[in-house]
Design a protein around this nucleic acid. Structure first.
Lengths: 138, 138
DNA sequence: CCGGATTGTTATAGGATATAACTATCAAAC
DNA sequence: GTTTGATAGTTATATCCTATAACAATCCGG
């Protein structure tokens, strides 16, 4: 089948992202994590005491959708909340959460490395700058 | 907020793709098209008389999900079916479908060009090969 | 102190995708 | 030529993800 879409950057971008997404999701699944869970754990870890709203803003997740997500992470014993003031609550990793994050990071780092390894050397270093331009240039 | 994810290729890939996807979806919306509709129209155009199954296989769309999709395109008067044999039916664009595709192509081409234009010149030519390696290297 | 913005939350709707099952048909081996 | 396995199209359904609207409580700047 003649796939004329194959060389359109937008289409290729979507397909490459969805292939990578599916692959990583499979690896994280073994840890009982979704990608979005891992992203949230990472952000909480590097930004202790930040709020659900702030995390959501960074990851483009609606406030409303953070609720079930955080509930899951809290129920799993990975995240805990501490009141900042009357309306905000700071998020933090529990020890179990830090341990789970460490596992996740190992998986993610090796995945990211394997992604880069697939790219021919002469193109490799150009990917990040190009993607960055695409993400922010819109 | 410290976003340590910002420089992970996998994450960047996903964010860049989703930004691009959202942008193109907005532009195609004015034509009454979703991206997947446009993709299907493009493939039918360059592969006349191909079957729903074959189109779906190329685009990674389940047979079952092709049904409502094609029904929409057919109801809109853009696609028609002609029996190939007792169980297969070939897809073709109607004149209205070709016209709609022409409109869509104008939007898409300009979008793709604008995507590339956002990438600094020294990185631009490396994106397609890199994405191609990512898509197929898995 | 007041008014507008923000936080967390509930409920709900929509879209996209995956799975299972079924019929009818084709194709190839025997 | 008949049986058997694969394929096409379809229906129905489940699930997940995301978007929207509304609400109460609270914060903050003027």
């Amino acid at each position: 089948m003649d796939d004329t879409l194959r060389d359109k950057p937008g289409y290729l971008l979507r397909r490459a992202a969805s292939a990578a997404t599916a692959e990583l999701a499979g690896k994280l699944d073994h840890l009982g994590l979704r990608q979005v869970d891992a992203s949230v754990l990472i952000l909480i870890d590097s930004n202790p005491l930040s709020t659900a709203s702030a995390i959501g803003r960074t990851l483009d997740i609606q406030r409303a959708n953070m609720v079930p997500l955080l509930k899951r992470l809290e129920d799993a014993g990975w995240v805990e909340r501490s009141p900042i003031d009357g309306k905000s609550q700071g998020l933090n990793l529990t020890p179990a959460g830090s341990a789970k994050l460490a596992e996740a990071m190992a998986v993610i780092e090796s995945f990211e490395a394997s992604l880069l390894a697939r790219i021919p050397a002469e193109h490799r270093d150009h990917l990040l700058p190009a993607l960055h331009a695409l993400w922010n240039g819109g």
